[in-house]
Design a protein around this nucleic acid. Structure first.
Lengths: 199, 199
DNA sequence: CCTACCGATCGGTAGG
DNA sequence: CCTACCGATCGGTAGG
């Protein structure tokens, strides 16, 4: 009588669809998603999948949101108990590089892939990807500024320049890992980042 | 009688199709190309476009080849008369960054976009993109090693590490320019690259 | 280089 | 969550 069990099952199905959508999108891109393809992967009918979303764009947006949540969950533990500044910045960058080395997706970090795919296409999906990227960039900048204020970095440190290089090392690590399957990419990025994380 | 004029016109049409395909692919990806879409853009019939290529994959491969040619043509003049080693490396990196800042495509460097798109999809298109990327990587490594042999860089310089960071700065510049439209990205990449191009 | 067509798949919906 | 369908578009081809 009460729809309790049915609601839980619906939620589980919804999550399974979004989970599969992230995996597919990490390889085929957010525009490579197809409702029929996901249905086939999950042993469902096309309408059964489509009924969980207003339209395909909502599915894409949910995949981006879920990927951001996975990233956040992967990074957050490393940040706990760390003081703002270099300590927290080092922990965040290390967790980030480890995430890029060993992503929870078959095609590498979904946000990196979506950023490259969507960078030329205006719209809500691009906006969501940019917002995700901005949040990480803001974290790096915030900790760099905290390090300057704490005297861990010289007062004339160019935080934006350091942030640019850290983001570049992440992009380069991702590219080397995905395109070249280079097992040393992570350590190369760490070595290049080290002088940026010191006073 | 002689098909001379017809052959030339056919070649021009072929080039126009590939040129348009590069522009579209720089925004929509190589998998975002459609023969019907190109036909509409060029005021041709779908079969008129399709007849120039054995199949869609051949069109994708020709777009990659043409993009490599455009890149090579943009870089080559800067390398003329430059001695192997740091002088040639600096000229190449400067031309490369300038190319990434101001690409001949509406969606940014096609090779960078295709590398991110294709990195998880085995096949001839991915192979062509990787080969293009490898050629540029080989150039950087060759000049770094020439600089070491010429005594411009210490004998214990880690050429692969420097190459990794230069490639990362290119990826970061491309991302900042395309995703963020950051007008300072080029200069930030140049500043970060400077210590890597010196003894 | 064209018209006209093929089967397959797309996103989305009606109706249950 | 299903079957069954809509119009549109896909890559590709026959025939001229």
């Amino acid at each position: 009588m009460s729809p309790r069990r049915s609601v839980a099952a619906t939620r589980d199905t919804h999550r399974a669809i979004v989970r599969r959508a992230m995996d597919v999108a990490s390889v085929e891109g957010l525009d490579g998603l197809s409702i029929g393809g996901l249905a086939s992967d999950l042993g469902m009918s096309k309408a059964g999948v489509a009924g969980h979303f207003a339209n395909k764009q909502q599915l894409q947006l949910e995949a981006v949101d879920a990927a951001v949540e996975l990233f956040t969950a992967a990074i957050a533990p490393a940040l706990r108990e760390r003081a703002p500044g270099l300590d927290r910045l080092r922990a965040g960058v290390e967790a980030w590089f480890a995430y890029l080395e060993d992503t929870p997706f078959p095609g590498g970090c979904l946000i990196q892939a979506a950023a490259a795919e969507q960078d030329g296409r205006p719209g809500p999906v691009r906006d969501a990807v940019v917002a995700a990227d901005d949040r990480w960039r803001a974290f790096l900048l915030r900790e760099l500024h905290a390090a300057i204020e704490a005297g861990e970095l010289p007062a004339d440190t160019d935080a934006e320049q350091r942030c640019f290089v850290l983001l570049a090392l992440g992009a380069g690590l991702n590219q080397a890992a995905q395109l070249r399957a280079d097992p040393r990419a992570g350590d190369r990025a760490r070595r290049a980042a080290r002088p940026l994380l010191d006073g």
